[in-house]
Design a binder for these strands. Structure first.
Length: 500
RNA sequence: GUCCCCAUAGCUCAGCGGUAGAGCAGCGGAUUCUUAAUCCGCGGGCCGCAGGUUCGAAUCCUGCUGGGGACACCA
């Protein structure tokens, strides 16, 4: 903390001013509201009360200007010594000397327009509401230059509160994130789907393929896993008789961290009984059209250098057909050796051994085909081997009724006609378990309760998982997932945390 | 986990073998319409940490820590 600011704190106390007062300060307007409505005189602006941070001081002799920043934005303040005739020290000492940029203050006064035409609050009374003991990296800019921009990503993420104070655009981004979630929730609610909550701590994890975080429940002396997906629980609810359920789900995956991955991330998963993946494609098109329109005001989104159009219908391509187009021959007819040669040709690394033929195909698809889909594209009919929870295709049992929605070369959503044949499901999960065992990975018992639920009969169901962080990145033109998480995971500062 | 880049004042950066600089922020003064306010004056640094090379290291080398990017992993 700044020693100078601590001294000021003491001086304030000596003057009988509590730097952290208890009394509330009720505001009756905001900076944005005044700037918007004052020119039309739609409201009475004789006694406005607003609160926020002191953002700039332009001190002159007997009268000075300042800027107040509240949640809505910035507004200029005008302080005049004559306004404090009975207590000039309030102006000369408290305002001019003891208030620092960043201090939280409440002001009361009337609105007027300066000679240069700026709408300004003439402050008649003010109160310190909370002293700020650190200097804030306040940016200053002209047309040509920006001074002291607060740009170090590490500092911005570690001290997100400072980032939010300084960058109004960052606040705007997170409002938009909330608006996206809200738009999705409204869309689902209008259709009568039920928003639910299912366990984050799970005795058996499933619904995706990823390393979990493990913890321990002392009460029952047993391991628990943070969910990597909530799929299997939502399906149990479909078995239970709900026809449409959804959940915004924080999921946890103990994998690498990069521009597109954070160990905890948010998906919304939706399950609707008596529907299939064709129906789900149309729903996703409508959902995205609605959300994008509502949040951005249009259907075209700028993402980096890209212009993305969320105008339905989206392009549809079958998995193997897309591969054939890129590779020039049908990969299903190629031997493992030929596939290896193809990977080698393109300089692609091999999957971790032990790998099977299908892993080579998937590698080709993920590295060569998927990145080419920039505009929203449904990739349909994934191979059955890599889709253990999706129903076999009604006309080709080697593929599944599954689609992924790819946008800007990245997976945004994943959906299936859900596998509801309990015997096929058991066989597929057992195969997955065997593969994992062969790969030397930790053996995870099958989720017997989930299989038992299917044995009671799950209606034919369409299911969807949609990445909220990814969607937010697209709609906010954010280059990394860290930009759309308030508190992205970083290594702790200073000494490492103790091992439990 | 591997590779590349970065770390200098509160913030943003320059300096890249000869003992540390700018702008903004800060402190003192002047100023009743400023808005990057202006004008005069001033302070501020374990140059990320530890070792090495050198007569001499912010600068070169090695290791470590933290961050960014790419790759791998993430059906």
């Amino acid at each position: 903390m700044e020693p100078i600011r601590l001294e000021k704190l003491e001086e304030l106390r000596a003057l009988g001013i509590d730097p952290y007062p208890t009394e509330p300060f009720a505001v009756n307007t905001t900076a944005a509201e005044i700037l918007r409505y004052y020119p039309q005189q739609k409201l009475d602006y004789k006694a406005v009360r607003l609160a926020g941070r002191l953002w700039r001081k332009r001190l002159m002799g007997k009268a000075s200007f300042a800027v107040l920043r509240d949640e809505s934005g910035d507004i200029q303040l005008y302080f005049q010594r004559d306004s404090f005739a009975d207590k000039p020290d309030l102006y000369d000492i408290v305002f001019k000397k003891l208030l620092d940029l960043g201090d939280v203050i409440g002001v009361e006064g009337f609105v007027f327009t300066t000679k240069t035409g700026e709408i300004t609050v003439h402050v008649e009374r003010f109160r310190l509401l909370a002293k700020c003991l650190h200097p804030l990296p306040i940016e200053k800019q002209t047309e040509e230059k920006t001074y002291a921009a607060f740009t170090d990503p590490e500092l911005r993420y570690r001290q997100r509160y400072v980032d939010l104070i300084v960058h109004l655009g960052v606040r705007e981004l997170f409002r938009r994130r909330t608006a996206i979630v809200q738009a999705i929730r409204d869309f689902f609610n209008e259709k009568g789907y039920l928003e639910v909550e299912t366990p984050i701590l799970q005795p058996v994890y499933g619904g995706a393929f990823a390393r979990p975080f493990v913890t321990h429940l002392h009460a029952l002396d047993m391991p628990l896993y943070l969910r990597i997906a909530n799929e299997l629980y939502l399906k149990r609810l479909i078995v239970g008789g709900f026809t449409g359920v959804y959940e915004f789900s924080k999921d946890f995956r103990n994998e690498g961290i990069d521009r597109f991955h954070n160990p905890e991330f948010t998906q919304v998963e939706l399950y609707v009984a008596y529907q299939d993946y064709y129906w789900m494609m149309e729903l996703v098109e409508k959902l995205l059209e609605t959300v994008v329109q509502r949040v951005t005001g249009g259907l075209t989104v700028k993402y980096g250098e890209l212009e993305l159009s969320f105008q339905a219908p989206f392009r549809r391509v079958r998995y193997y057909e897309a591969l054939t187009e890129v590779v020039g021959q049908d990969v299903r007819t190629l031997s493992e050796t030929q596939l290896l040669a193809l990977l080698h040709e393109r300089g692609l690394p091999l999957p971790e051994p032990p790998y099977e033929r299908i892993d080579l195909i998937a590698q080709l698809f993920d590295k060569v085909v998927e990145p080419t889909f920039i505009q929203p594209t449904f990739v349909l009919d994934y191979p059955v081997e890599i889709s253990p929870l999706a129903k076999r295709h009604r006309s080709d049992p080697s593929v599944t009724e599954r689609f992924e929605l790819i946008v800007a070369g990245k997976e945004l959503a994943n959906a299936y006609s859900e596998l509801n044949d309990p015997l096929d499901q058991r066989a597929r999960l057992e195969r997955q378990a065997a593969l994992r065992a062969a790969g030397g990975m930790e053996a995870m018992p099958l989720d017997e309760d989930f299989l038992r639920a299917l044995e009671y009969g799950m209606p034919p169901t369409a299911g969807l998982g949609l990445g909220i962080d990814r969607l937010t990145m697209l709609l906010c033109d954010a280059p990394s997932i860290q930009e759309v998480l308030f508190f992205p995971l970083l290594r702790p500062e200073g000494s490492p945390s103790p091992t439990p």
